[in-house]
Amino acid sequence: MERMEKSAVPADLNVMKKNDLRLIAALVILAAAAFGGVMLYARLSTKEPEAVVYLEGEEKGRYPLSENITIEIRQENGNCNILQIKDGKADMIEASCPDKVCVRQHPVSRQGESLVCLPNQAVVEIQNGQEAEIDTSTN
């Protein structure tokens, strides 16, 4: 058993210890709390969300989610993403990259959400824009 001697503490081979369960519970609670926080933050904001397009970290344009529009994000090197804003949601409908992770992502609409195309270094982030005029009644 030369292999086992190398670890200072003998390997614990229980399937599940009390500490494991505590860890799992703590992580689930942490995730739920963080998720709740993010949702609450998005809901409390009364500003009208905008889709902000970034290429290599540089802002390229802002588009309010209230207007239906299709934007072609074309770069000098030929890379291209097509962003569609429809019914208050932003969705990447096409990408020139091979993995298409951003296309498979669900449409985004809430503050802080984003669509990311890593190969093209293109990011669409939902941010708060102007204070919405209609929403003030809910305060």
């Binding site: 390997a11 399937v15 210890k17």
Partner: peptide, 9 residues
């Protein structure tokens, strides 16, 4: 290294 968690943890 520490005997806190088993394989699952």
């Amino acid at each position: 290294r520490f005997p806190v968690f088993s394989v699952t943890g």
